[in-house]
Simulated scan of single mutants.
Amino acid sequence: MFDIGFWELILISVVGLVVLGPERLPVAIRSVSRWVGAARNMASSVKDELSQELKLQELQENLKKAEQMGMQDLSPDLRNSVDELKKAASEVQRPYADKNNEQSSATTSQKQE
């Protein structure tokens, strides 16, 4: 990220010691390290989200190619992508189906009473 060598780090620490004093320097170092950690966490989460979005976009493009080819004579990569999309779609639909089944069984039991 930053290209800070050993001597630059020594110079920064000496200036920080002179400016802040020995009482406030540890607190300042802790707060700076928290900010750096938060920035790294945010950058990694953004990176993960972007990679997921790119993968999703690639899968959608493969699905469009598969639909255009009529789902026959697909390459193994396209076949794997279609299978992954079908699996993801079934996992997304399952929680809603379970909730609908629970609600319909609850309303049926209420009607019977």
Rank of each mutant, 00 (worst) to 15 (best):
A38R: 13
A89C: 08
Q60V: 12
E8W: 00
A38H: 11
E58C: 02
A66E: 01
V36Q: 11
T108P: 00
M69L: 09
D3P: 01
W7F: 09
V32Q: 13
Q60F: 08
V32P: 02
K65N: 12
F6M: 00
V18P: 01
S33R: 11
M69S: 09
L9E: 00
K65L: 12
M1K: 11
T107C: 06
P22G: 04
S81M: 08
V82F: 02
R24A: 14
M1W: 11
V18F: 06
D77G: 14
E49A: 15
D83A: 15
V27Q: 15
S104K: 14
M1Y: 09
M71L: 01
V32S: 15
N62I: 03
D3R: 06
L63A: 08
K86E: 07
N62P: 00
S75A: 09
E67A: 09
D83P: 01
A43C: 11
E67S: 05
Y96A: 04
L11S: 04
A38P: 02
S105I: 11
I10Y: 01
L59S: 02
M42T: 08
S44M: 09
V19Q: 10
K111F: 08
Q112L: 04
L74F: 11
M69G: 13
Q112N: 06
S44W: 05
T108N: 05
N100E: 11
A97T: 14
G21N: 11
T107I: 14
